[in-house]
């Protein structure tokens, strides 16, 4: 099938549709680029530290829960922990309430709440993120065992 061999009527219709698609596509690209920061679901630790997050406004911020940073208070559901981007930037989150099942060290979380003047994020809601990897529990345990063995010389 040759493009030039198409009937002129059909060729014009094809060009019209493709032109329309290209035009709308271009417009959409600009719109999405302009709205980029609004489409992102949460602020990253770097953005929190750099002061890009408005103080006191209701926003979402997220990162990885740092190992050993979880502190629970006795007798209440209050919990404080640090989230980082694994590249140096980190901030503290405080939360009172029930954490999702997937919440643990090294897990990604997205917190809804407000940032205070002193850089502590007070969360009203904590959502857990998980990665795209799936494996049976036995495999995960075997992997952990090999990791431990590798650490012990």
């Amino acid at each position: 099938m040759k493009f030039g061999a198409m009937k002129p009527q059909r060729r014009n219709r094809l060009l019209l549709v493709l032109g329309l698609l290209a035009g709308v596509g271009l417009a959409l690209t600009f719109v999405l680029k302009a709205l980029n920061s609004n489409i992102n679901l949460f602020y990253t630790p770097v953005q929190v530290i750099d002061g890009e997050v408005p103080i006191g406004a209701r926003v979402r911020a997220g990162g990885m829960v740092e190992a050993g940073s979880i502190r629970r208070s006795e007798g209440s559901l209050e919990v404080a922990f640090t989230v980082s981007d694994l590249a140096g930037a980190a901030f503290e989150i405080r939360y009172i309430g029930i954490l999702p099942d997937l919440f643990r060290e090294g897990q990604g979380v997205v917190a809804t709440g407000a940032l205070s003047q002193d850089g502590v994020f007070f969360a009203e809601e904590i959502l857990a993120k998980h990665d795209e990897k799936y494996m049976p529990p036995e495999v995960a345990m075997a992997l952990d065992a090999t990791k431990l063995e590798a650490l012990q010389p």
Binding site: N36, I39, N40, L41, F42, T44, G62, V110, L127, K129, H130, D131, E132, K133, Y134, M135, P136, V139
Partner: peptide, 23 residues
Amino acid sequence: WWFTLHQPASFTLTERPAMPFSM
């Protein structure tokens, strides 16, 4: 392209699936 709550794809054309055959 954006930070989302949804995780990235487990299957890509170039890499092995991020799960074992049993899944």
